[in-house]
């Protein structure tokens, strides 16, 4: 098999806090193939964004964060690179777009200036060339009359436009991997659809891999080929998108699926809710992390943490008795 573009092995991200060390991402492993769109889903606070930012080592390593494990980009471990080497990776090989386009652009510079800056950080271009590139990028991301827009300030653009600018910026150096951290969460639904279409298009055109972080399973179904489900800093399930939606194995994933409103469903019925709350990061249970909220949990679950085990092919799940649960459920439906 070909070497994957990005390979994360047992990544742990620790934070120093006033209440001691907290491990926000605890032993995550997954890989991203060239040109694929990998979804990372999970509820708020499960470590999705921390994973994303860890890949680019965006946290302050001197004072707040420390990493363990391996993040291999084409075989090269990013965690062992120097600061300067890391700066060359950021924006050039791996780019990132953020959740809130309204605050992701510096208000004091024109968007053209900011685009040109990204280009000129990594490439040796004259101002004129960079400006032309910026205009082309804006055109590529579907911004009308880019020649005019290029000299406008962020506040003159709408949220959707600004997210397009962010995407243009991220694509400026044709990165091999784009990390999209909830890029559509802050946008309204029609704009959301446009941005997703744009990302799909660009993924196809440029053959760039995308790690798509979201809590919206609808979005996952639309754009992703493979999905990693995270819960409390760990991967609980990993599968191809069809498989995940047809046969979810982990009780948590099942809970998430049931919580999606169905257009043709019975509206008088209440949506399924996963009871309880996520345990705090400094009070992580010793057994299975989901046990306190799982309706199938027994003593084994509370005592011993399960490992991620392979179910079939590349469908992995972290649960002691996912097989029984699936059988039980099948029986219930029958």
């Amino acid at each position: 098999m070909e070497q994957p573009l990005l390979e994360i092995n047992n990544l742990k991200t620790h934070f120093k806090t006033e209440r001691g060390r907290v491990t926000a991402v605890d032993g995550i492993s997954f890989s991203v193939e060239k040109g694929e769109i990998l979804g990372v889903v999970g509820e708020s606070g499960c470590g999705k964004s921390v994973t994303a930012q860890s890949i680019l080592r965006l946290f302050d390593e001197k004072y707040t964060a420390s990493y363990e494990g391996e993040i291999k980009l084409q075989g090269e471990n990013l965690l062992q690179l120097s600061k300067a080497e890391m700066e060359k990776i950021r924006g050039n090989e791996v780019s990132m777009i953020f959740q809130d386009p309204l605050s992701s652009l510096n208000p004091v510079f024109t968007i053209g200036y900011q685009l040109m800056e990204t280009i000129r950080i990594h490439q040796n271009r004259t101002k004129k060339q960079a400006r032309q590139m910026a205009i082309d990028l804006l055109r590529m991301t579907g911004i009308p009359s880019p020649e005019k827009r290029v000299s406008e300030y962020p506040h003159q653009l709408s949220g959707g436009m600004r997210q397009r600018v962010m995407i243009a910026m991220a694509l400026a150096c044709k990165p091999k991997l784009l990390i999209a951290d909830e890029p559509t969460t802050a946008l309204d639904v029609t704009i959301q659809a446009q941005i997703l279409d744009l990302m799909l298009e660009l993924n196809e055109e440029l053959g760039m891999a995308v790690v798509f972080i979201t809590h919206d399973l609808g979005v996952v179904a639309e754009v992703c080929t493979r999905v990693v489900v995270m819960y409390l800093g760990q991967v609980v399930e990993e599968a191809n998108v069809e498989e995940l939606f047809t046969t979810p194995l982990h009780p948590y994933t099942k809970g998430l699926m049931k919580a999606i409103p169905q257009m043709d469903g019975d509206r008088s019925q209440k949506l399924n809710v996963i009871g309880g709350t996520v345990p705090a990061l400094n009070a992580i249970p010793s057994g299975c992390r989901f046990a306190s909220r799982c309706e199938f949990a027994n003593d084994l679950c509370k005592e011993k943490a399960p490992d991620l085990q392979v179910h079939e092919g590349n469908h992995k799940v972290r649960c002691w008795h996912y097989a029984e649960i699936s059988n039980k459920e099948a029986a219930r439906h029958a």
Binding site: L58, R90, Q99, T118, I121, M169
Partner: peptide, 26 residues
């Protein structure tokens, strides 16, 4: 702590560039 500073950092800007070019005007 603004997102745009993190965003430009994720684009590969060095510390000096971030301080003098992006934080200073603000």
């Amino acid at each position: 702590e603004e997102t745009y500073i993190e965003a430009i950092r994720s684009q590969g800007a060095s510390a000096a560039r971030i301080i003098w070019k992006h934080i200073a005007p603000n």
